[in-house]
Design a protein around this nucleic acid. Structure first.
Length: 259
DNA sequence: ATGGCTTCTCGTAGAAGA
């Protein structure tokens, strides 16, 4: 039986955060696969050599200014696929790859901006496309982890001030319904497999001292198929990098699997 | 306080993030 850890981190610019990513990986040698979101880099500017020099392999697809995803791994990355098949998306938001027999799907789910924005129906259609695609992926890869920045706080306990946020984007019922449709596909919210402290969040607003006040949301998730959930021994939101200078507004989240 | 802060860009102000 071997232990592997799978992680996700919205780095909000890999250009700025690369040293922090490398430091974090060095401090977490059991992390076999790390899915990144919001790399915000065109492929020609991606720091592939630096990541490989640290002893990792990496697959990536990005674009200027916004979005962009990557998969960093200690072990070979196989069968890489970008974007949701059949969903014509001009925003780079998904990478799927197999690492040590585990299918890791890393997503940067759309934010939606507001319920009135045209970005909100885009978010819902993106979620619907993901929901339509995943059943086949799950049958092909029974060991599957869906990770990333979901931009959905599934329950009120995932929100620092549920009254203030009520009905807003990231917590609206149509988004939450789709999150729980993912659960109905057989994907388990690994964080809730274990006792957790109250007010556990993965994102804190840069503004108004959000982190200091723990005014956050739990929107970064690791969802596991049944065989992986059965092997999961821990799910941790690592707040430590949020204390760095120039931190990402998101914390990394990782699971430990005893496979 | 419908803001705050941080990132990005055919940039130096405005959009977007969540």
């Amino acid at each position: 039986m071997a232990t592997m850890q799978i992680a996700t981190w919205n780095v909000n610019s890999l250009k700025v955060r690369l040293p922090q990513v490398l430091d974090w990986l060095a401090a977490h040698p059991e992390v076999t696969a790390l899915a990144l979101q919001e790399t915000k880099l065109e492929d020609k500017n991606f720091p592939k050599a630096e990541i490989e020099a640290a002893g990792y392999v990496v697959e990536f697809m990005g674009q200027k200014t916004y979005n962009g995803v990557a998969m960093i791994a200690r072990a070979p990355i196989q069968d890489v696929q970008f974007q949701i098949p059949g969903f014509d998306d001009h925003q780079v938001r998904l990478v799927a790859a197999t690492v040590q027999g585990v299918r890791v799907v890393g997503g940067y789910f759309p934010n939606g901006q507001s319920l009135e924005s045209e970005k909100y129906p885009y978010k819902l259609s993106w979620l619907d496309a993901l929901l339509a695609w995943l059943p086949g992926e799950l049958s092909r890869y029974p060991r599957l982890a869906l990770v990333g920045d979901f931009n959905i706080a599934p329950e009120d306990r995932d929100v620092h001030d549920p009254v203030k946020w009520a009905g807003d984007v990231l917590v609206s019922p149509p988004e939450r319904e789709r999150f729980f449709k993912l659960v109905e596909l057989g994907l388990v919210d690994s964080f809730r497999l274990f006792p957790q402290e109250d007010k556990a969040f993965s994102w804190w607003d840069y503004r108004a001292a959000g982190f200091r006040r723990n005014a956050g949301l739990r929107i970064d998730h690791v969802l596991l198929s049944a065989p992986l959930a059965a092997a999961c021994t821990a799910c941790v939101i690592d707040r430590e990098p949020r204390r760095n200078e120039r931190p990402s507004d998101h914390a990394p989240v990782f699971v430990t699997l005893a496979l």
